Amino acid sequence: MTKTPNIIHDTIKAERLLNAAPERVFAAWTDSEARKRWEPTPEGMSMDYDGHDFQIGGYEKSRMTKDGNVLAEFDTRFIDIVENSRVVSSVRVNSGGNALSCSQHTIDFRAEGNGTRLICHEQVAWFHGHDMRAEHEGGWSTLLDRLAGEVEG
Rank of each mutant, 00 (worst) to 15 (best):
M64L: 15
E39G: 09
R77N: 11
G51R: 06
R16G: 05
T2E: 14
A111G: 09
L100T: 00
H130K: 11
G68L: 00
N6K: 15
G44T: 04
F127A: 11
E83S: 11
T4G: 08
I79M: 08
L18I: 03
K66Q: 15
V91Q: 01
T2M: 10
H121Q: 11
G97H: 01
E33P: 00
N98A: 14
A134S: 10
G153M: 10
T2H: 11
L118Y: 05
K36P: 01
E112A: 06
K61S: 13
S95G: 12
I8L: 06
G138L: 06
E152S: 04
A134F: 10
I107T: 12
S89L: 08
F54S: 12
N69E: 13
A27K: 11
A72L: 06
A21N: 01
G153H: 13
D50K: 15
A14T: 03
D108G: 05
M47P: 00
Y59T: 08
P22L: 04
F74Q: 04
T4I: 14
V124F: 02
W38P: 01
N69H: 14
A28Q: 04
C120S: 10
S85D: 11
E112S: 07
E150I: 07
C120G: 09
L71T: 04
M1F: 10
I107P: 03
V70A: 04
N94K: 09
V70L: 03
E83Y: 08
Q55T: 13
E33W: 02
T65W: 09
A20E: 03
G68E: 00
I56C: 14
M45F: 09
S32V: 05
G51P: 08
V25E: 00
L143V: 09
A28P: 05
N69K: 15
T142D: 05
A27R: 14
H136A: 13
I79D: 00
E60Q: 13
L144D: 01
F54V: 14
H105A: 14
H9L: 00
S95R: 02
G113C: 03
G138M: 08
R24P: 02
K36A: 07
N6Q: 14
G97N: 04
G58N: 01
G57A: 10
S46P: 00
K66Y: 12
L118W: 04
P5F: 08
D145W: 01
V70R: 10
R37N: 05
L143Y: 11
H105Y: 13
G115M: 04
A27C: 04
I79T: 09
M64R: 13
R37M: 05
D80V: 07
A148G: 07
I8R: 03
R110H: 10
R86M: 09
N69I: 11
A28F: 06
S89A: 07
E122N: 09
G129V: 06
T65M: 14
Q104S: 13
N6W: 07
T142Y: 06
E23T: 05
T142A: 03
G149W: 06
N6D: 11
I107E: 07
G51K: 10
S141L: 11
T142M: 12
T11L: 05
T30C: 15
S95N: 08
E152A: 02
T4H: 13
L118H: 01
H52G: 10
V91C: 08
A14K: 00
V70C: 01
L118K: 03
A125V: 15
N84L: 06
R117G: 00
I8D: 02
A27S: 10
E15K: 13
H9F: 06
H121A: 08
